[in-house]
């Protein structure tokens, strides 16, 4: 009987069927890796902000408690962004003439809020926060996330 297909067709078929699975897996891996890469997440990119603000300086050097600015962190799903008023509590006295802080003073004078650019995009709904909390408890082996963790455990 005359063969319709060459013998090698079997191999090609096997390779291409299984190969396709590998290809899919590889594709998925590429997509996930790209999705997590700093190219997509833009990690490490410094955003333009109205005022050059440094957490490191305010927290590590000056020793200001997180809750002084993020006032609602302990009783709301949103930690809170400090109002201009809070900035001015100190900066009406120190660096009161610094040109870098002019936008803050302008905001205080006019009542027009500062426009910061968001750096961390993960905006969590309360339900997600629950899930996130559970994840933290699992990976950090902490019984009660609220009482044992300090902000700087994660926010470094």
């Amino acid at each position: 009987m005359r063969r319709t297909f060459h013998r090698s067709t079997n191999t090609i078929a096997r390779v291409s069927i299984f190969g396709f699975l590998f290809f899919l897996a590889g594709l998925a891996w590429v997509m996930i890796t790209v999705g997590r890469s700093s190219y997509v997440t833009e990690a490490g990119i410094a955003r333009r902000q109205p005022v050059p603000f440094s957490h490191k300086h305010h927290v590590a050097d000056d020793g200001i408690d997180c809750r002084y600015c993020h006032t609602t962190v302990e009783n709301s799903s949103f930690a809170g962004m400090p109002s201009t008023q809070i900035c001015m509590n100190c900066h009406s006295q120190i660096w009161a003439d610094s040109p870098m802080l002019e936008p803050v003073r302008a905001s205080y004078r006019t009542g027009e809020p500062l426009h910061w650019t968001r750096v961390h995009m993960q905006w969590q709904t309360p339900a997600n926060q629950d899930e996130m909390g559970r994840e933290l408890v699992r990976s950090y082996k902490i019984k009660d996330a609220r009482s044992l963790m300090s902000c700087s455990t994660c926010h470094r």
């Binding site: 997440t41 833009e42 955003r47 006032t71 609602t72 009783n75 709301s76 799903s77 949103f78 809170g80 962004m81 400090p82 109002s83 201009t84 008023q85 809070i86 905001s107 205080y108 006019t110 009542g111 027009e112 809020p113 500062l114 426009h115 910061w116 650019t117 968001r118 995009m121």
Partner: peptide, 20 residues
């Protein structure tokens, strides 16, 4: 992700707890 802004209050009203 799109670039987003955070616009806090200039003067925070009394009793407002953001998110509540």
């Amino acid at each position: 992700q799109p670039v987003e802004e955070i616009i806090p209050y200039a003067r925070q009203p009394e009793q407002v707890v953001l998110g509540q």
